[in-house]
Design a protein around this nucleic acid. Structure first.
Lengths: 361, 361
DNA sequence: TTGTAGGCGTTATCAC
DNA sequence: GTGATAACGCCTACAA
């Protein structure tokens, strides 16, 4: 139904081949006819058929994104970044979300395969052994964001935040604030980022001469509800922890809410540190101290890696390698400091200024 | 590079046509050879090429999603719902975000056109006149979520929350709580949902015998920063408002934060109601009273509309029509207890004092 | 500079 | 039941 190259050819009294060349601005066509054809194409409302083109050139200029759920704001930001970066490079993004349903993940990968995506970016998904196998089958570059990867000789690479470093930073910060009894609210154990953060936590404690107490490790879910439900367990050890490092911001926010409902004041009774620095972290009360993930660099980096792998025809000698970028501690009110805004980066001061409330004062 | 139908044909000693039929489980093929072919396809790791298939059947089984930014958690949830619904119906989703850049929106639509999407869903985007023109050019079903549409004879329909009703509900709730001086923090004026919500606000006031005061309409941005910056303007009128209805939750959350920074207590000094009911609405402090959008129904509804329009070959007599669903008031702490405290002029004046604000420069 | 022809992977319409 | 054959829209040698 849409106007094709043939229609234009007919209208311009030339052959389809000439039209094709003219539209791709080939030098092998008379500038007069070229202009005539281009004008005609414009008038007739021609839009090239990417499918047909892909079929012959062997690339779709398309990359697939695999996520568990877009509901998590961190994921949303990540997807946003990836889409922008891809679009700027002339790539279209196909989105699949598994809703944490394993079989859906498999179906999604098969779908991407039949769409002949040039590459795949997986973010915020636990890539089990089951899963990786299917990714390898794709036979296209795959970049995992924030997931450990076992190079099985496939085409799979990874980029991620340094989770161990982040966990270390968060815990060291709490130690520096004088806390000695620090808990950790984890995510499900099969997430590699979780185990890495936990390891950073343990190493920081060890460095301070503190042995990690298993009773202080509470299992969360990576969602707000997990943080909320963690509170009772957090308070049961004797002595109870004075500070908590959470797997992520969403967990921390759930914990803050539960703590407030329980009549605890934060950070006086319980200091809390999260991970991610989602937009909402500065709007909870108290504002959440957290490890900021360099979302922008991760997303852009992932796209760049895919593209590099794509142009890299010599597969044996890769110029691409796994990347790791460090997160940064963002200190806000939830981790202490009786005077919020006094030290370091303070959302409070920033906010007040932006609200125009502190002028002259 | 990937194994094609021809490869299988060769291996099975049949023609490509037979393989095609066998794989699609056509009854017009011997069950023995069918099974043999299917097994062979499996062994050889065959995956059908959706592009090639689309080319001949004339449909891509693909729908495009256009959003401004995925950073907004409400948008993320919406996209999630759409993707799930589409996937269940066997449709692939192509995602484009404009980042609010007009030319990017146009580029995005052109891209979707060249991808030959079967339909388009636009969510959380202001569909200016400029924009709609480009959508019409697509010549495929377009469903707008939460945007007014002028039926220009095109293929464009809309589904959305009843914004007028929502604005009315929110305002009526505040009135019922005893507030008489109620402000509205708006989004940019070119968003139709904003004007509708504002109209509901005005109508509710009118019904209570209150004339809308232009000084109580403060311009926000639809993002948190807009809510934060709105505070000074909100407090400057005399008497100052005792309650505020915000265009959306994100705006309300920004406002809550700014108010707290300014030393106001919510809801005693200022009651606040938002719109959307994003996941975080229940985690702010105080938890945010809001109008819950039926995201699920909107997203699913949009997909169903696109699909219905697709199967509806008789275009003159459409069975599809614009849909509107009602939001629901979710009462939380930010709008006060069921027994409102003092609300009135004196409280307003007092409030300005406590905030330490000066009126007029 | 332009036309011709073959093919990308698939489906569909015929024959046989 | 299976095999040719012709599309779908585009690109690209190669030929003229």
């Amino acid at each position: 139904m849409p106007v094709s190259i043939k229609d234009i050819a007919q209208a311009a009294n030339v052959t389809p081949g000439t039209v094709s060349r003219a539209l791709r601005d080939s030098p092998r066509v008379n500038s007069d006819t070229k202009e005539r054809i281009q004008r005609l194409a414009d008038e007739m409302g021609y839009t090239p058929d990417a499918q047909a083109r892909s079929l012959v050139i062997g690339r779709t200029q398309t990359i697939g994104i695999v996520v568990t759920t877009m509901t998590d704001p961190f994921v949303g930001t990540m997807v946003q970044t990836i889409e922008s970066a891809a679009f700027e490079q002339g790539y279209t993004v196909i989105l699949t979300s598994s809703n944490e349903i394993p079989e859906r993940e498999i179906e999604a990968v098969q779908m991407l395969q039949s769409r002949r995506v040039d590459g795949v970016i997986v973010t915020s998904s636990r890539v089990g052994s089951l899963y990786q196998e299917h990714l390898d089958r794709l036979r296209v570059p795959v970049v995992l964001i924030n997931s450990l990867v076992h190079h099985t000789g496939g085409y799979t690479y990874s980029i991620g935040v340094d989770n161990h470093h982040g966990g270390y930073l968060a815990t060291a910060h709490l130690l520096q604030r004088g806390h000695r009894c620090i808990a950790y609210v984890s995510a499900p154990a099969d997430r590699s980022d979780n185990t890495e953060r936990q390891r950073g936590y343990r190493d920081a404690l060890a460095e301070a001469g503190i042995e990690a107490d298993p009773a202080l490790i509470v299992q969360g879910t990576g969602r707000a509800g997990g943080g909320q439900r963690a509170l009772p367990q957090l308070l049961s050890p004797d002595p109870a922890p004075t500070a908590v490092f959470c797997y992520n911001d969403v967990t921390a926010i759930g914990l803050i809410t539960a703590a407030r409902e329980a009549g605890l004041s934060i950070p006086q009774d319980l200091a809390i540190v999260g991970f991610d620095d989602i937009a909402f972290a500065q709007f909870v009360h108290p504002a959440l101290t957290t490890i900021a993930q360099p979302v922008h660099r991760l997303g852009r980096g992932a796209v760049e890696m895919v593209l590099a792998l794509l142009s890299d025809d010599d597969r044996s000698e890769q110029t691409v390698s796994d990347a790791q970028v460090r997160g940064r501690l963002v200190v806000r009110a939830s981790s202490g400091q009786s005077q919020p805004g006094a030290a370091g980066e303070s959302a409070g001061a920033e906010l007040s200024q932006r609200a125009g409330l502190k002028q002259g004062g």
